[in-house]
Design a protein around this nucleic acid. Structure first.
Length: 852
RNA sequence: GCCGAAGUGGCGGAAUUGGUAGACGCGCUGGACUCAAAAUCCAGUGAUAGCAAUAUCGUGCGGGUUCGAUUCCCGCCUUCGGUACCA
């Protein structure tokens, strides 16, 4: 049947084929990359435009016009400046605008592994693989200017049928805040201005100091000689702290005074400028105007450094204890806006700032541009070569750029990515290719278009195919991709749409999150500091004690579940054999110490602490993702071998709603297996001979059939597959009870079952004498006539409590039902002298008698 | 902390628009078949009391709206997912 399904076009390996390192697929991913390189995003036009259009504008008017429309951080140039630039300078300048561009940025660098790790590959400051330290390192990376599309990505969410929680995740990730940008000139050097972003410009009269991120570009200029030593020490200290440490000490207040003052452009007051590590270099301008009366972090800082707290609203209270971030009341101590409320104050201030050239209304995003390169071997090579420090794109005809042969998939001795190992891999034999490769999300950001036209030589898909298929009707994927894959894909799609290459703005109309089938993850506790140069693993109970008693820190390291005894139970542990298996698997830890209550295992032998004969190194079990990364993948082949693919498939559906995550267990799979055999037994006798007859089905048998068709058709529409399976079970049980073996019923039922149990259905379909595939037949429709019963069983409730059920003719009107119920003797005993006040009849549903 | 989702028998879960709470399955108990077991079939299975009919309680907790609430409203608790000093 696999062959037959293949013939129908369902290739089981289709997706895998397309997405792995296949030259065809590399080619079109690289082709799209080049389109991104050749375009810039014009905010005024609200779409991507060819970079040539930008060059024309630069030549005509400099970037004054496009600066605001594109990237406001670009240095300002005039048409004359542009004309004076040589080709290289222009190329370098255009990198400020291209939708993909190289940029210095901080990455998680693991020196021991010689590679950059993504955030999810770093756990507790150590690499998941091998448990090595990871540091922040500034590296030149290719980036995608996804921020250019922030507003469109936000607005597009309103047009698609995706889960609200997922949309919210994307909204929060994009993090649009509306506020104002204000420039504070330095007190003794008014040419230099500190620009801040604030969402509470109304609190500007409450500013009592300024705070800059330690990485802020003005730091050295602002620092006075008397403060220089202290500032430099603070900057060094802040830079040395890893993200992990910063996160652990979130509530600690640290900072240093620069010695400089700046001037509040609205009030004209002088305020001191501090550095503080609660200000993030990567958000806004890396500087904040501190309003301790309205912001808790500013308040904490003010208290720590004994800075003044000025109330600005008459409703503010308790400022000695905490900040008051509410917007209630009328402004006080606020010259321009005294007596106003929040709603009037904000526009008045922004107006003032703009007309006095001190600032403007501004929208700020939390989202940053996406780092696009990886220092790995596998992945599409970035189709770019470098000449005198400037990247040049390959031409379309030079695609695909394939991965070169290398001796090892490891970084070079000088720390270059693995592609640096390739000998003579140069453009025109002289220019070095970009050595990083694209991340996994590059290819996954557009692949559905290739499915529309997989063999097209001239384009990733033809206009005809795109016009026919348009977009993805239903995308099924995990919610863990909410702010990764699903956002990047939307970004690429909006870009392709701008170029007329994608038919719709959004790539998927509807999306549902299938819940993850989870596994049990087993962790080993690894002490973060080495002991005499040896890694030390301890039993979970020991780790807990040492953590509590000495504050010793441990990292959790996922290990292969095959090594674990009593896997998945609270008592899971490694025996000596398990430890040895672990060492064989991870030779880095050959000299490690393993310690449990029973003793120590090292260098291949067990040293008991007392008279213990063996050790149990407790592991920590956790329900979580089933993933290669956690070495806890259950191979479905084993289940398929035992129960068959249909049973496996149906059991997965039967486990519960498709969106819910659930740990994998095979507890109930026998029930589904039993059902499939019962279903098959409707067609065959116990002895195995064919039992289907051509008799006319009874009304009851047809009712069962049509009720099932109705139920399953409706439940498929709402992705309620677990209840579909339940409906099949009910139908099978009822037909079994009725002894129904009639073709007219069973033939239809097989078709309804086909999407759920494709193999068994196909087998039975052919056994019924059909020659074509069941998967080509049309789905049956139900006939309501068979579902109408002559009588309806009404539950009769007294004051909402069901007391008895009575059959009434289906044709009875509500008035007749009420009269019948009022006259019922069986009700009398519940009345206990009370009288019937009212009778509520819900036709076809129930009858409630109100007694009082 | 903030954002989102969810809490129903021993377990997975059902109840689609406010209308018989616990469909279906697992497990468990008893029975049939068997020398015996497996498989299969039949019956029972929310809790408490009762031989039973039945009664009372029962959808995380406390209130409310309603003839009637797992479903709607208000206030909490817990769990999971996301995010994290975002100015």
């Amino acid at each position: 049947y696999r062959q037959q399904l293949d013939n129908l076009g369902f290739s089981f390996d289709w997706r895998r084929e397309v997405r792995t390192s296949n030259p065809d697929y590399y080619r079109w991913t690289q082709w799209i990359f080049l389109r991104l390189f050749h375009h810039y995003y014009d905010q005024a036009a609200g779409k991507a435009l060819p970079i040539e259009a930008l060059e024309t504008r630069l030549a005509a008017e400099g970037n004054a016009g496009v600066k605001a429309a594109c990237d406001e951080h670009t240095p300002r140039i005039t048409a004359a400046d542009w004309a004076a630039m040589d080709e290289q300078a222009r190329a370098r300048f255009l990198l400020h605008y291209r939708l993909t561009f190289p940029e210095e940025s901080f990455v998680n660098w693991c020196p021991a592994l010689g590679t950059v790790l993504s955030n999810d590959e770093v756990k507790d400051g150590l690499s998941e693989r091998g448990g090595h330290p990871v540091e922040r390192k500034l590296m030149k990376q290719w980036s995608m200017r996804i921020t250019a599309y922030a507003d469109r990505l936000l607005e597009g969410l309103n047009t698609i049928d995706w889960p609200e929680s997922l949309k919210d995740q994307q909204r929060n990730w994009i993090g649009r805040s509306q506020g104002a940008s204000v420039r504070f000139p330095l007190a003794d050097h008014s040419e230099t201005e500190i620009e801040v972003f604030t969402t509470r410009v109304d609190t500007i009269y409450g500013v009592t100091f300024m705070c800059l991120a330690p990485e802020h570009e003005l730091v050295s200029q602002l620092t006075t000689d008397t403060q220089r030593a202290a500032v430099e020490e603070y900057v060094r200290w802040a830079a040395s702290r890893s993200d992990v440490e910063r996160m652990a000490e979130v509530k600690r207040v640290t900072g240093v005074f620069t010695g400089s003052y700046c001037i509040n452009p609205v009030s004209g007051e002088q305020v001191p400028v501090y550095l503080a590590d609660y200000v993030l270099a990567g958000y806004g301008t890396g500087a904040v105007m501190a309003v301790p009366s309205g912001d808790q972090r500013d308040w904490n800082f003010a208290r720590h450094f004994s800075l003044p707290v000025v109330p600005i609203l008459d409703a503010q209270q308790g400022l000695e204890e905490a900040a008051d971030p509410t917007k209630e009341g009328r402004y006080i101590n606020s010259d321009l806006i005294n007596g106003l409320g929040y709603a009037e104050a904000v526009p008045r201030l922004i107006n003032w700032l703009e007309s006095n050239g001190k600032g403007r209304g501004k929208v700020q995003y939390r989202m940053r541009n996406a780092v696009f390169s990886r220092q790995r071997y596998w992945g599409e090579p970035v189709p770019v070569y470098w000449k005198e420090g400037i990247p040049y794109p390959l031409s379309d005809s030079e695609l695909p750029l394939l991965l070169p042969e290398v001796d090892k998939y490891l970084p070079t001795a000088t720390g270059e990515p693995p592609l640096g190992r390739a000998e003579g891999w140069k453009y025109e034999d002289q220019y070095e290719y970009e050595l990083s490769t694209m991340p996994g999300w590059a290819g996954s950001s557009w692949y559905w278009y290739r499915y529309m036209d997989p063999h097209n030589e001239g384009a990733f898909a033809s206009p005809e195919a795109l016009a026919y298929w348009k977009d993805v009707d239903l995308y099924v994927g995990g919610s863990e991709h909410a702010v990764g894959h699903l956002l990047y894909s939307r970004f690429w799609n909006h870009f392709l749409y701008d170029l007329g290459l994608a038919p719709e703005r959004e790539f998927a109309k509807k999306l549902i999150n299938q819940g993850m089938i989870q596994g049990i993850i087993e962790y080993l506790m690894l002490q973060k500091d080495k002991v005499d140069g040896h890694s030390r693993f301890v039993s979970a109970d020991i780790a807990k004690e040492e953590q509590e008693q000495y504050g010793r820190e441990f990292a959790r390291m996922p290990i292969h579940v095959d090594f674990v005894a009593e896997y998945g139970t609270p008592n899971s542990h490694l025996t000596e054999q398990g430890i040895q298996q672990f060492i064989d698997w991870r030779p880095d830890f050959a000299t490690a110490i393993f310690e449990s209550k029973e003793g120590i295992y090292r260098d291949g032998s067990f040293l008991p602490a007392g008279d213990a004969a063996s050790m149990q190194l407790q592991t920590v079990s956790e329900v979580g993702k089933m993933s290669k990364r956690y070495f806890n993948v259950v191979n479905p082949d084993d289940v398929v071998a035992k129960y068959g693919a249909d049973c496996f498939r149906m059991y997965e559906m039967f486990l519960g709603p498709i969106e819910d995550a659930k740990p994998w267990n095979t507890k109930g799979i026998d029930g589904v297996s039993r059902f499939l055999r019962k279903f098959r037994a409707l067609f065959y006798t116990e002895a195995g001979s064919w039992a289907v007859t051509d008799e006319q089905p009874s009304r009851e048998e047809l009712r069962v059939l049509h009720a099932t068709i109705k139920k399953v058709s409706e439940d498929i529409e709402r992705f309620s597959f677990n209840t579909c399976i339940s409906a099949f079970m009910v139908a099978t049980n009822e037909l079994g009870r009725l002894g129904c073996r009639k073709r007219a019923v069973l033939r239809e039922l097989v078709v309804v079952m086909a999407p759920f149990a494709p193999f068994l259905s196909e087998e039975l379909w052919h056994a019924l004498g059909e020659t074509d595939s069941v998967h080509r037949t049309s789905f049956p429709t139900f006939d309501p006539a068979y579902l109408q019963a002559d009588t309806i069983t009404y539950p009769i409730a007294l004051n909402g409590k069901t007391r008895l059920t009575v059959d009434f003719p289906a044709t009875a009107t509500p008035a007749e039902l009420e009269a019948a119920v009022r006259g019922m003797e069986s009700l009398a005993k519940y009345l206990e002298g009370k009288s019937v006040k009212k009778v509520i009849v819900v036709p076809g549903r129930m009858i409630n008698v109100v007694v009082g």
